[in-house]
């Protein structure tokens, strides 16, 4: 079975991630814990986008909005001295779902290029909102003075603990998305992606299903935002910058859309490439841009397409 090779590759990959902290500490390179924690946080965002983009065919160019909403939910609560992590993260998830509901309600009525432009535009709106609210730092952003507090349960200031929490959430989300897309619900959004006209003709109304998927993806990414602000201990409107949305999208495509492991593979590959290029030259975006164009032109199914067992039809 070719799919078995992919499953083994995924398990090996996750096992390596689990083994990373002790190895890094033994080698006295704690920097790698930090590095891969960042990778995994973005992988969570990519996993959530993959749900709607890869399986639902909704090309959202505004997914960074929920990183921002999640980040600001934590940041603003902390600013007013509320540092209970359960509350903060709950608000981050809830607020992201709510914003996704509003953006989705308008944008899912449209499709194709309209959908792309509208999701991008709404995210830009939130970005400008972030810039114009001076109270929370405006353009410059603000520091997160205390990390989210979980009492005796967890201490995020411990790098390894935080790392494993992120890994656990990543694995949980990958599993949740896997279950979702194979359930009745997931079959409807995949059907709507595959052939919308046929889907209506057999009696489905895809809109509510797509909207719920959009909300779930937003909520998941909102949690990634809450993690990200704790990771950087700093918050700026740049969380929601449109290039961030483009990057998350590229992570999904690079890894291979509509696959379980794709978003993780794509995220690690893209961020490693970015880090390598930027260590080498300040003009790394020039090369990243060329790389992006080449991938689209020549590697249509992303890195996952290079593994055996890929779908034959792009």
């Amino acid at each position: 079975m070719l799919t078995r090779i992919r499953t083994i590759a995924l398990v090996l990959g996750l096992a390596s991630l689990a083994a990373l902290p002790p190895v890094a500490l033994a080698l006295d390179e704690p920097f790698y814990i930090d590095l891969f924690r960042r990778f995994m946080i973005f992988a969570i965002a990519a996993v959530s986008l993959n749900l709607i983009l890869g399986y639902g065919g909704m090309v959202s160019f505004g997914h960074a909005a929920y990183l921002g909403i999640g980040g600001y939910a934590v940041g603003i609560l902390a600013y007013y001295g509320i540092d209970n992590g359960f509350l903060q993260w709950g608000v981050a998830i809830g607020a992201s779902a709510l914003v996704a509901l509003v953006i989705g309600a308008v944008s899912i009525r449209t499709s194709g290029i309209y959908f792309i432009m509208i999701t991008l535009a709404f995210t830009q709106m939130l970005y400008f909102l972030g810039i114009s609210v001076e109270e929370y730092g405006g353009d410059d952003g603000m520091s997160l003075l205390t990390l989210s507090q979980f009492g005796e349960w967890l201490d995020l200031s411990d790098a390894t603990t935080f790392y494993y929490l992120v890994l656990a959430i990543l694995i949980a989300f990958m599993y949740i998305v896997h279950r979702l897309v194979n359930s009745r619900f997931g079959m409807v959004i995949r059907a709507a992606k595959s052939n919308e006209v046929r889907t209506r003709a057999i009696g489905f109304s895809p809109y509510p299903y797509k909207l719920v998927a959009f909300m779930i993806a937003g909520a998941m990414c909102g949690l990634a935002g809450a993690l990200l602000v704790n990771h950087t201990a700093y918050l700026t409107p740049d969380f929601m910058h449109w290039t961030r949305s483009g990057e998350i999208m590229f992570m999904v495509i690079l890894g291979g859309v509509g696959t379980t492991a794709g978003p993780l593979v794509g995220t690690v590959a893209l961020l490693l490439l970015e880090d390598t290029l930027s260590a080498w030259t300040t003009h790394w975006q020039l090369f990243l841009g060329i790389f992006l164009v080449l991938v689209v032109l020549f590697a249509k199914r992303g890195l996952a397409g290079l593994l055996p067992g890929g779908k034959r039809n792009g």
């Binding site: 495509i253 003009h283 975006q285 992006l292 249509k300």
Partner: peptide, 23 residues
């Protein structure tokens, strides 16, 4: 190609041009 490919490739072009101008 589909719109997704077009968006990604032209996103790549943006990064390229912005950096080229900066250089």
């Amino acid at each position: 190609r589909d719109h997704l490919d077009q968006v990604l490739a032209t996103f790549g072009l943006i990064l390229f041009f912005n950096e080229l101008i900066a250089i």
